[in-house]
Each structure stands twice: as structure tokens, then as C-alpha cells.
Design a protein around this nucleic acid. Structure first.
Lengths: 232, 232
DNA sequence: GCATATTTGTCCGTATGTATA
DNA sequence: CTATACATACGGACAAATATG
């Protein structure tokens, strides 16, 4: 077999027996999650119980529990009698993802309008983005963008909205990992976040809603267009 | 041990070996889910691997996978090295549940305002409620109320909102199962659903929003009050 | 606080069924 | 159609953590 196919397998072996106060299945899920989110494990890859269990030095039992965890996070899909695969999202999935973001982030702004919101986390994320843009570190800019929208959703003041948004952002990283140049997507959005934050600062919540809608429409359209030309 | 404590255990045994095209863990999860949702398995109950596995005739392996499924649905909580328990919700959980309902159902009405919504499912749920009320079948009235709000959330036109709402309603049943007289809660809300439907029919979406908010505030307050007096 | 019994976490071997080359 | 690889599911085992007296 080609070396490229087992690269991630080799990288998994380095994770054997890392001491963890938590359960083994959580450790295994964590190791796989980072590989998936960072694009090392590509969508569609089959996660064979034998190979992965062997590489990580855990039994099939433990591994299957880890698969359940990742399945819950929608990072893998389990096909009965066929196995577990890294999730591959299609255009419909992307549309649904953005539909959900409109619900969650829209609710957050609506709540902010009645809440005297604390915007420090938003401001920090914008600064983080400005620094990343200045350093032309597009990976960091992508993270900053995620932090901004996670902080935005937090304005809703709801644990569940928080969790849902975290979930959605993890899936967004999965989407990006399917694209040719993931970082190029984030570059245009720093200014959008800046104006959105500015509108929130000045209490212009209606305008913030339309700015958010504009941002999400634009980002969705760009991703859908890129998804048509499937890339690498 | 008293007979009442093992009632649900006996009822589980009747479920052994039911033929299913699906996986064993799904079957087991389904059997436990109905017991939990219908209040046969009360919140706080410990789900012993040995007892339940024995009663259902499945191995511990399979049973633990079923526990994972129910854990996703937030119907049970897993405490490391202690086991899994039927989830017991507190006042904060109830508040967060309703906060989430405001987000989901509010988004649905907002989407309806731009969508020329199909209200047949809502109408069917109202009729179902009217029939149940006429027959003084309070359990059926509760189901009708759930169907109404599930159909309402469906107006959002989003798979994920759908799933989230289904999830939330399952947890609502868990809340009701902790109350002394679960059915008494649904009785006042038939008329609220009727007026909400009427407002949607006439395209008065702003009024529908406030009617929904009123309904949710009322329902939440009533549940919180009942939760203070923990009941049976 | 201690000793014991119970229960969970994890691994292994194996048999059966299902999908696919 | 056969053969092979793999997932599903069972049962047994043991250490470690927890509950119980």
C-alpha cells in the first residue's frame, strides 16, 4: 500500500497509552476527532475496527464506544453491517448547516437586544483575527472566525444553543477539510465580523440581523460554489 | 425486594428476541426508551448492566451501546465508574429547555412568515386535541399538544430544527414523568394552540410570536412551580 | 476507617452473519 | 458462485473503582 494511505495510521500509533484521567473511549475519540477536524482523516475514509484498534492499542469494545461519541458529533457515520466512515457532507448538508446557523446566531442577536450583552469575547475574537490577518496566517484567521461566531452564539445565553453551535462549527471544519484551499474562505470575513461587532456595540440590533444574514448568505454561496468543483 | 421495584424489569423480559431488521443495540435502546418516556422507569433509577442485560437477554457489550444511544438523546446520564441513570432534570434544566423551545419555535414562525406555510399538520394536531378533550382523555391530549409543537417547529423547514425539537419533546416527557399529575398540565393549552393556529392562518405572524411567547412563559412557570413540590 | 461484595471498565476469543472482490 | 474480509454479537475473564456492612 502507498505510504500516503497509512500516514494517519502511523500518526495514531504515537498516541498509544497517553495517560488520561478520563475513560479510554474519550481518549480514543479525542485522538480521532483531531485527525478528522484537521483534515488528516479525509471524509469518506473507512475507519476499520481492526486497523485503528491495533494502531491505538485498544480493544474493539473501547473503539466502538469512541465511534458512538464521534457519531453523536456527526463527524462519522455508522452504516449497519458496513462500518464507520468519516462523514462526507453534500450540498444539502451545507445548506442545512447554514439554515441552522441562521436560527442559532439570529436568536443570539435577538437575545442580545434585550440583554445588555457582554461583547468582550467578540472583541477578543476580532482582535485575534486582525493579528492573524496582519501575520497572513490564514489558519489562525479561520480559528478566529470560528471563535467570533461561537462567541456570538453565546449571547443567546443558552447552554443548548452553545452546544449546538459548537457542534455546527465542528462540522464546518469538516466542510472546509473537503475544500481545496480551506483558508481562502475566511479571508473576506474579517471585515464582516468587524462591522457586525460595531453594530452590536452601538445597539443597532436590527442592522446587525441583516448584516449577519448577509454574511451567512455570502459564506454559504461561496462554499456551495466551491463544493461543485470537489477539489483534491 | 418489593414487587414495585422490579415491575419494569418484568416488563422488559417480554421484549426478548423480538425480530428486528435493525441492530440489537437499537432494539434495546427502543425498549428502554419507551419505558423511560412513559414514566415506567423513573428519573434517577440506576440501570444496572447485569440486571437489564439479563432481563433483555443481551450481552453487556450490546447493552452498553444502547446506553450510548440513550445518552445522545439525553434520556440517561452516564457517570464514569458508577453506571447509567435515568436522567433527572432540575429547575435549571427546565428553564434551558424552554429557552431552546423559544429559539426553535420562534424561528419556525419567522420562517413561516416568508414561506406560505402548509398548516395541515397543525390543524390535524388541533383536531386531535379537540377529540381528546371531548373524550376527556388527558394522555391523548398531551400527545396532541406534542404533535402540535412538533408540527410547528417543522415550519422552520430544517432537518436539524426538526431533530432538535423531537429531542426536546422527548425530554419534556421526562419532565412530565416527574410530576404528580402529568396530564393536568396539557389541559389549558388546547385553546392556546387553537388561537396560535388561527393567527398563522390569517398571516398575523407578529401576533403569533407573542402568542407563542405567552404560551411558553405560562407553561414554563407552571412546570417550575410544580417542580418545587417534587410530587410522587 | 476497614474489609467485603458488587459493579463497572476493558480486554480477549470466537461464532455468525453480511458485504464485496 | 465462491472466497475473503469485516462487522455483529456473545460469553468469559480480570483489574479497578465503588458501594455496603
Amino acid at each position: 500500500m502507498a505510504a500516503t494511505q497509512s500516514d494517519w495510521l502511523a500518526s495514531l500509533e504515537s498516541e498509544r497509552g497517553s495517560i488520561g484521567g478520563t475513560s479510554a473511549s474519550e481518549r480514543v475519540a479525542g485522538a480521532l476527532r483531531t485527525r478528522i477536524i484537521e483534515g488528516e482523516l479525509r471524509p469518506g475514509t473507512r475507519l476499520s475496527e481492526e486497523k485503528i484498534g491495533g494502531a491505538l492499542g485498544v480493544s474493539r469494545n473501547t473503539l466502538r464506544e469512541a465511534f458512538h461519541v464521534l457519531g453523536h458529533e456527526r463527524l462519522v457515520v455508522h452504516e449497519f453491517n458496513r462500518g464507520v466512515f468519516v462523514r462526507a457532507l453534500d450540498a444539502d448538508d451545507i445548506r442545512d448547516l447554514y439554515r441552522y446557523r441562521r436560527v442559532l446566531e439570529g436568536a443570539a442577536i435577538r437575545q442580545a437586544a434585550v440583554d445588555e450583552p457582554d461583547l468582550t469575547a467578540l472583541e477578543a475574537a476580532v482582535v485575534e483575527g486582525e493579528l492573524a490577518a496582519a501575520a497572513e496566517d490564514w489558519v489562525a484567521l479561520g480559528s478566529a472566525n470560528m471563535h467570533f461566531h461561537r462567541a456570538l452564539a453565546a449571547l443567546a445565553g443558552s447552554r443548548r444553543v452553545d452546544e449546538a453551535m459548537q457542534q455546527v462549527l465542528a462540522e464546518m471544519r469538516l466542510v472546509f477539510s473537503m475544500m481545496a484551499d480551506p483558508h481562502t474562505f475566511h479571508a473576506p470575513y474579517l471585515v464582516e465580523n468587524q462591522t457586525l461587532l460595531d453594530l452590536l456595540r452601538r445597539g443597532r440590533y436590527e442592522a446587525a440581523q441583516t448584516a449577519l444574514a448577509h454574511y451567512l448568505d455570502l459564506a454559504q454561496a461561496q462554499l456551495l460554489q466551491a463544493a461543485q468543483a470537489p477539489s483534491r
